[in-house]
Design a protein around this nucleic acid. Sequence first.
DNA 1: ATGGTAGCAAAGCTA
Length: 262
Amino acid sequence: MRIASWNVNSIRARLESTLDWLTAAQPDVVLLQELKCTVGDFPREAIEDLGYNVALHGQKSYNGVAILSKLPLEDVHTTFSCGINDDQCRFIEAIIAGCRYISLYVPNGMAVDNDKYAYKLAFYDAFTSYVRQLLSLNQPLIIGGDFNVAPDLEDAHNPTVFTRTDRILCTIPERQAFHTLLAAGLYDGLKLHVKSLPDQQLPFTWWDYRAGSFIVDKGYRIDHFLLSPQAADLMINAGVDRTPRSVTRPSDHAPIWIHIKH
DNA sequence: ATGGTAGCAAAGCTA
């Protein structure tokens, strides 16, 4: 099975490139983030025409997540208990072929002194609690999404950003929150795969639109697949698909993917 | 240190 996750930065602005990418990459399961539209405005028919079942959680202008699947989706949920800003559409979960999938869009945080930064840390806390419950089931669990954290020095083009206390995506509390989530018992799928190969660098997944960051490869690795032990056992390959980041009017994120035994 | 671009939606907010 081919599993992909992609922050599209507006599904309507990205519809043509999304359909092109789906046709070329042929993923069986797709976890999407930043739809930036309501359920009613989602281009459901165009995607269903490519053979996908659709489950989505959308709102006007911001956020929004979806799961596309060639196999039937069961047991769909669109919330976990965070306690604040629960009206923001950042989570959707479904069971597909006996495996639980979550599409996650973690708050960006904006700036260290911003209320959104506190929300981001609270979101990590609450999601970690939820993941601990899921992991106690001892079942395959695949979480894909935009985590808005570069976990380690190799996950940013310029490691000196980690010496600054004001650089969003890279501050110590954000990275600690991410590593606490991992420590609940999840594997970083991309890292697990790349580190099993000789002399491979971890690829970036996001490049700022500004200052031509993609051309000079000044990126960050902030999109991740996090896997339960039962899912990690199934993984056979992983990577980043830079092709959709290279087209005209791209998303600022590239799709990430894993292959699992089915 | 600053400012650089993009999407939504119609001026500023978010990223």
